[in-house]
Simulated scan of single mutants.
Amino acid sequence: MEAVDRLIHLLEQAAARGAELAVFPEMALTTFFPRWNLNDDAEIAGYYESQFPGPQTQLLCDAARKLKTGFALGYSESVEEGGRVRRFNTMALVGQDGELIGRYRKMHIPGSESPEEGTTVHLERRYFEPGNLGFPVFAYRGVRVGLALCNDRRWPETWRMLCLNGAQVVLVGYNTPVLLDEAPALAHLRMFHNHLPMQAGAYQNTVWIAASAKAGLEEGQALLGGSCIIAPSGEIASLASSVGDEVITHRADLDLIATCQRVNFDFARYRRPSEYALISERAGPLE
Rank of each mutant, 00 (worst) to 15 (best):
T69Q: 01
A200F: 06
R87P: 06
F88A: 13
L29N: 08
P136T: 05
E116W: 04
A185G: 15
N132D: 14
A187S: 15
E12S: 07
R65A: 12
D41R: 14
R105W: 02
A211W: 05
P115V: 07
P232N: 07
E235F: 05
L256N: 01
A22Y: 04
R272F: 04
Q221P: 00
Y104E: 02
G111A: 07
N132K: 14
R17G: 15
V121D: 00
H122F: 09
R17N: 12
D41P: 09
L29A: 03
F128E: 02
R17V: 12
E43N: 10
V207K: 00
L60M: 04
A185N: 13
E182D: 14
Q96I: 10
G225N: 12
E287C: 14
M191E: 15
P273R: 10
E113C: 08
R84T: 15
Q221C: 06
H122W: 10
R103L: 14
V4W: 02
R84G: 06
Y203I: 03
V121C: 01
G74Q: 03
M107G: 01
V79L: 09
A15W: 01
E113D: 12
V79K: 03
W36N: 05
C61M: 05
P177K: 15
G98H: 01
F24G: 00
P285V: 08
I229L: 10
R154S: 11
V207T: 11
G98I: 03
P25M: 03
G83P: 07
I279Q: 10
N132T: 12
A28Y: 07
L224C: 07
F33E: 08
H9M: 13
V145R: 00
L123G: 00
R144H: 11
A211G: 13
N37L: 08
R269V: 07
P115L: 10
